[in-house]
Design a protein around this nucleic acid. Structure first.
Length: 563
RNA sequence: GGCGGCGUAGCUCAGAUGGUUAGAGCAUACGGUUCAUACCCGUAGAGUCACUGGUUCGAAUCCAGUCGCCGCUACCA
């Protein structure tokens, strides 16, 4: 039987991630993983923090911490917020782990053995006061073309000219401001993407089922022609390069980051070696279907560089079967911005509302085929209409009516009839639509199908009007309400990939056993599963509504500073 | 500068290989209901598919140009 391996792009260690990061990789991967588990599939969902590189070193420096400690803190902070969002990683690792170091060096050795590594000398700016090499963007100075005095060494943000750091007038270190810089030449290793190009292209072209975005990004790179790519850096924080003369260098983060997908799986495996086998997922694993999730900026690395790394080893490592790329979630038409504090970050979001509000909303507006835009008005309208109005209200009106007329036990009496047949048929259609959408990685469509499923309950209860039936035919009213309570169970099961916390709350309300909670999508369609006489509880309001005043306050609070 | 993407109802977005009256949700209007979180259900109106020209029997869908928005530019990740 097929086993499903799922990874979402590794969030960089540096700082809290925002809703755009979440919806572009981890959240849809989680929904997909939860959905497959609901279908009874064997799933391994792996993610990790991407910890190496200059930004981490500099952030640590700014906080007066050594980089290891800085990463320890940030990793815990990120992991914590992901757990609170209900991201159901089977393991959330760290690219700085010994497992990743070992694997990264292995990949390098194989590439080197197969002659896909080339050594070249390159020139870089060295800051004597900082005692480090500076990446181009960490050198700032006056632009030779427009005179802007804070141009970066890779590009002037004012006139958009592409620059070399050596072209800057009065260059200085972005780290310390020191002008004590010099150009030094050092040797570096390059991955021969050029010689692997035709193999990569053949692989890309064999994946015809990829989304348009993924495929076109890959082909764009291939058509432009691949160049050898530098995979080492003059840093100390990273994976050491096992080669003479490279004692003071490490691998470039982009080389070791994808390898951490494997590394994190080994971290997971090493915690319980007798029951977990990382290699069965990653090496010679014919029965594994591997799906990757990421935002579009990551696509070149996952369609070109990482596959090239694998192909170059000449070993049978698992390559992606499906690469789901997302566009951007914008914030009022612009970018979420950490530096300007613009947009909603994950910790802020949870401070305002529980995770399911965000999870449902984000999936329903996932930027799948185009960028999509976050506004508080849109958020409030989705929450109020779908979660509070359609789902929450159905649960509330049903359980309250039963409790007040029959007490808090599922009522007995009445005969299943044509109305119920019709309801069941509608639910079946919607669940099929939902299942198909998720199997095809169509998240917006899945959210819409789920919402449609929720609507059937309100249509049914309105058509049957049990509040009227109660006056004439108490048994018939009991049937209708018993069916509605079963529908709550249906919703709890089917909705769990998107709103897992709400599903659990509903299971609690219905007093379901651990065994009963394991029901899958097909079991969810049994509208007589909960028999008469079972007790239930009337829960507090499931989802609260957001009013204009509150929405207004959030818009102001998260607008950020203007330029 | 180069490259790429986008511009479809008031809003957010769908619309392979071009083919009947261009779709969904929200919002709006009207009607129904009163068990429920002033909620729910139904019906309706609403678009010269950015603009111009071209290819074609036929284009939102292909081509060229114009305008507008956005992103990337491989040593930030």
């Amino acid at each position: 039987m097929t086993r499903y391996l799922i990874t979402s792009a590794l969030p960089y260690i540096n700082g809290m991630k925002h809703l755009g990061n979440l919806v572009g990789s981890m959240l849809p991967a989680d929904v997909y993983a939860r959905f497959l588990r609901l279908e009874g599939e064997e799933v391994l969902y792996i993610c990790a923090t991407d910890e190496h590189g200059t930004p981490a070193e500099i952030a640590a420096l700014e906080e007066g911490l050594d980089v290891k400690t800085y990463c320890d803190i940030q990793h815990q902070r990120q992991k914590d917020v992901y757990m609170r969002f209900g991201l159901s990683f089977d393991y959330f690792g760290r690219s700085s782990s010994p497992q990743n170091h070992e694997l990264t060096q292995h990949f390098y050795r194989m590439l080197n053995k197969n002659s896909f590594i080339e050594e070249r000398g390159i020139q870089q700016i060295y800051s004597l006061d900082d005692e480090r090499f500076l990446p181009d963007r960490y050198v700032i100075g006056t632009c030779p073309k427009c005179g802007y005095d804070r141009a970066r060494g890779d590009q002037c943000e004012s006139c958009a000219s592409l620059l070399n750091p050596s072209e800057l007038v009065e260059p200085r270190s972005a780290v310390s401001g020191s002008r004590n810089l010099e150009l030094r030449t050092s040797k570096h290793l390059f991955l021969r993407l050029d010689t692997l190009s035709s193999e990569i292209e053949a692989w890309v072209k064999s994946n015809t089922q990829w989304p348009k975005l993924t495929y076109s990004v890959a082909m764009k790179w291939l058509n432009e022609g691949l160049q050898p790519r530098c995979i080492t850096r003059d840093l100390s924080w990273g994976v050491p390069v096992p080669r003479e003369g490279y004692e003071n260098k490490v691998f470039y983060v982009w080389f070791d980051a994808p390898i951490e997908y494997v590394g994190a799986t080994k971290e997971w495996s090493d915690q319980d070696p007798s029951n977990r086998d990382w290699k069965s997922w990653w090496y010679d694993a014919d029965d594994v279907y591997y799906a990757q999730f990421m935002a579009k900026d990551n696509l070149p690395f996952h369609t070109i560089v990482w596959p090239a790394t694998i192909l170059g080893t000449r070993e049978p490592w698992t390559m992606a079967d499906y690469i789901k790329g997302f566009n951007w979630l914008t914030y009022y038409g612009g970018k979420f911005s950490t530096s300007q504090g613009r947009g909603v970050f994950m910790d802020d979001a949870l401070e305002i509302l529980p995770p399911d509000y965000w999870r449902y909303f984000l999936i329903s507006v996932a930027p799948e085929s185009d960028d999509s835009d976050f506004t508080w008005d849109l958020f409030a309208s989705v929450v109020n209409k779908d979660l509070a109005g359609t789902l929450g209200n159905f649960v509330n009106r049903t359980l309250k009516l039963v409790a007040s007329r029959f007490g808090t036990g599922i009522p007995d009496g009445g005969q299943w009839g044509e109305h119920e047949d019709k309801l069941l048929a509608q639910c079946k259609d919607s669940i099929e639509e939902y299942r198909t959408a998720l199997r095809n990685f169509e998240f917006r469509k899945a959210a819409l199908a789920l919402k449609k499923l929720w609507t059937h309950g309100n249509v049914y209860i309105d058509a049957r009007a049990p509040w009227n039936l109660l006056k004439e035919d108490r048994d018939e009213a009991a049937l209708v309400l018993r069916t509605c309570i079963n529908l709550v169970r249906t919703y709890a099961i089917a909705s769990s990939p998107l709103i897992p916390f709400t599903s659990e709350a509903l299971f609690d309300v219905l007093g379901m056993t651990e065994e009963e909670r394991k029901a899958g999508l097909d079991d969810a369609l049994d509208l007589t599963a909960l028999k008469a006489g079972r007790p239930f509880e009337v829960p507090p309001i499931l989802f609260r509504r957001l009013d204009l005043e509150e929405v207004d306050a959030y818009r102001k609070r998260f607008a950020g500073t203007q330029d």
